[in-house]
């Protein structure tokens, strides 16, 4: 049975709400719209955007990636540890690859062993945190050499002209992801598989390959996010990703990506993460207490999830 078509508020409503929100916060405290605040908030936004985009891939394929947070923590530690040995550049790449590899394993478990995504990635979450715990003993990693620290920090805290480096990277990656989803076979196949797996298999789509790639991309993007964050902090923190998983799923859904697969994309990811980041920052700048802030963001995410469920319900 079909649903009556209703106005797709996620398409027009959310951007409008976003701009209204910016205006309100600026009125409450003009410092909100200051260059410095915009710079630091977009910097946070860039990191969240990468993670949310990764989650979006998993959601589009009608899956979910619960291991993103722990993969982020892993990348944080792996990056700094690798830099000790390999230097800033090679070390960073090694760290990110570590993260992507976890996603590859997720994908293999899901595609070839048929383990449901929620279980496979949950398992990965535990394994990764376990490995990390054994490896670090929970100690934060710092004290890079001055050269390495300088090089690494540039990725997270540097500027190119008036724009923070992570933002530049996020924009480039964003366009790339948009292109992938819209103009490549892989991208289209994600939507098809996420919408109807039975029909996809009869349409001859390489489902397993796509699934493996999807989870690899999800973890790779989470790893990139973790890398920029680690660079910004110049430290490896074993619990870095813990708080981010909720934001990743919440941001994706808030932007309008469906948890039932096949609906959403980069634009939705961008919207969702901008709303979260600016809402959070705006509330801090307006002097709203931590508890109220968390409650407000939580409510916004829950409402978005509900909206997504209601929209899809028969």
């Amino acid at each position: 049975m079909k649903l009556p078509v209703r106005i797709d508020w996620s398409k027009f409503g959310l951007p409008a709400a976003f701009f209204v929100m910016l205006i309100i916060f600026t009125v409450i405290n003009p410092a909100f719209f200051s260059a410095r605040n915009m710079i630091q908030t977009t910097r946070q936004g860039a990191i969240l955007f990468l993670i949310v985009s990764g989650q979006t891939f998993a959601l589009l394929a009608r899956g979910i990636d619960l291991s993103q947070g722990s993969v982020m923590s892993l990348v944080s530690i792996a990056t700094i540890s690798s830099i000790y040995v390999l230097g800033a550049y090679a070390g960073s790449i090694a760290g990110i690859l570590f993260g992507a590899m976890c996603g590859f394993i997720n994908g293999m478990l899901i595609a070839f062993l048929g383990i449901p995504p929620i279980l496979a990635t949950l398992g990965m979450l535990f394994v990764v945190s376990g490995v990390e715990l054994v490896y670090t003993g929970g100690v934060t990693l710092t004290n890079l050499s001055d050269i390495d620290q300088g090089r690494l920090f540039w990725f997270g805290g540097g500027m190119i002209g008036p724009v923070p480096v992570p933002v530049i990277f996020a924009i480039i990656i964003g366009f790339l992801l948009y292109y992938i989803l819209k103009y490549t076979l892989f991208g289209r196949q994600i939507y098809l598989i996420g919408t109807n797996a039975d029909a996809s298999s009869l349409a001859g789509l390489p489902i397993k390959r796509v699934i493996v790639l999807v989870y690899t991309v999800s973890a790779l993007l989470a790893s990139l996010g973790a890398f920029f964050l680690t660079a910004r902090l110049s430290m490896g923190f074993p619990q870095l990703g813990e708080a981010w998983l909720v934001l990743a799923i919440g941001g994706a859904v808030l932007g309008g990506t469906s948890v039932f697969g096949g609906k959403g994309g980069v634009w939705e990811a961008l919207l969702g993460c901008l709303v979260i980041v600016f809402l959070d920052n705006g509330l801090i700048v307006s002097g709203v207490s931590t508890f109220a802030r968390e409650a407000i963001i939580g409510v916004v995410i829950i409402v978005a999830c509900l909206g997504s469920v209601i929209k899809r319900r028969v």
Partner: peptide, 9 residues
């Protein structure tokens, strides 16, 4: 419906 359609696409 089951083996052919991608309903939301």
């Amino acid at each position: 419906a089951r083996y052919g359609m991608f309903p939301i696409l």
